[in-house]
């Protein structure tokens, strides 16, 4: 059995590698046959990529971007979760806040960029702020939903056990709503990356977005593609980290749902 599964995996992997190699071969062939500024050869892209991921460029361009996303996400998630769970639990607040929340959910986050630029200038505070602005609504709404959906029997049990509202919020609502919150976090991650790139494309001195922008103006297309690839890797790393965290925190949830379904 295990040999069979291993064999399966090798075939899958082989197929994926083959596809990738084919695409790379096509690109390279096209770059050689039809040389053009927007179609650099693979070796140039590879060398730009390599430069970008170590040494001075790493520190100057990649790390600031990662830091902004990290900070914005953390802040957005913490605020979104705390406020969302509160709104979801203390149901009285919901009718008042609903229209505002629906508006925020519908509004594309990027529209606030010019306003943020006016308010905070071309600073890291501005960039982190719009990341927070973008990634908070999905988490907030997911948290509200998660808190509302907590089974009444769990709340009844908490009441009969003599828990106060605050204790119930922390010991029952938070864990019960966590699966829902994580679904919101997944969306927030995507938005955070978008907001990071856009804010850096339009108003930044450093960071991957700025790097791409600068190199685009100078027609260093290899650097542009390298930048894109690095952003992709960064996104992948963040996603992998989040999935790993989710796997650990929600181990009980997978087991529970596995039985129900």
């Amino acid at each position: 059995m295990r040999a069979e599964r291993l064999g399966q995996r090798i075939v899958e992997f082989g197929g994926q590698a083959l596809l990738l190699l084919t695409l790379m071969a096509c690109w390279q062939a096209a770059a050689i046959l039809f040389p053009a500024p927007y179609l650099p050869r693979l070796e140039r892209i590879a060398s730009s990529f390599w430069n970008l991921i170590h040494g001075e460029l790493l520190v100057r361009e990649v790390l600031p971007s990662a830091a902004r996303v990290g900070a914005g996400l953390t802040l957005g998630i913490v605020l979104g979760t705390a406020i969302g769970l509160g709104i979801g639990y203390f149901r009285g607040l919901d009718p008042w806040l609903r229209p505002i929340l629906e508006f925020l959910r519908a509004l594309p986050a990027v529209t606030v960029l010019p306003a943020a630029l006016l308010l905070l200038g071309s600073t890291d505070a501005m960039r982190v702020s719009i990341i927070v602005f973008g990634c908070m609504p999905p988490v907030l709404l997911a948290a509200i939903d998660g808190a509302r959906r907590v089974d009444q029997l769990l709340l009844d049990t908490a009441r009969v056990s003599g828990l106060t509202s605050a204790q119930t919020l922390v010991r029952v609502i938070v864990p019960a709503a966590l699966p829902q919150v994580f679904a919101g976090i997944r969306v927030a991650l995507g938005v955070a990356l978008i907001m990071m790139v856009i804010s850096e494309l339009l108003a930044a001195n450093n960071g991957l977005g700025a790097f791409i922008q600068r190199n685009q103006r100078l027609f260093n297309t290899a650097n542009v593609y390298a930048g894109v690839l690095v952003i992709g890797v960064l996104a992948w790393l963040f996603t992998a980290a989040m999935l790993e965290l989710e796997k650990r925190v929600l181990r009980w949830h997978r087991g529970w749902r596995g039985v129900i379904e």
Binding site: L153, L154, D156, T157, R159
Partner: peptide, 21 residues
């Protein structure tokens, strides 16, 4: 006004009243 501390309750739906985490 509220459930007194010396009272306990067991519900019918055990899979909804136990904390899955």
């Amino acid at each position: 006004m509220n459930p007194p501390p010396w009272l306990s309750i067991v519900f019918q739906d055990y899979n909804r009243s136990l904390f899955p985490w």
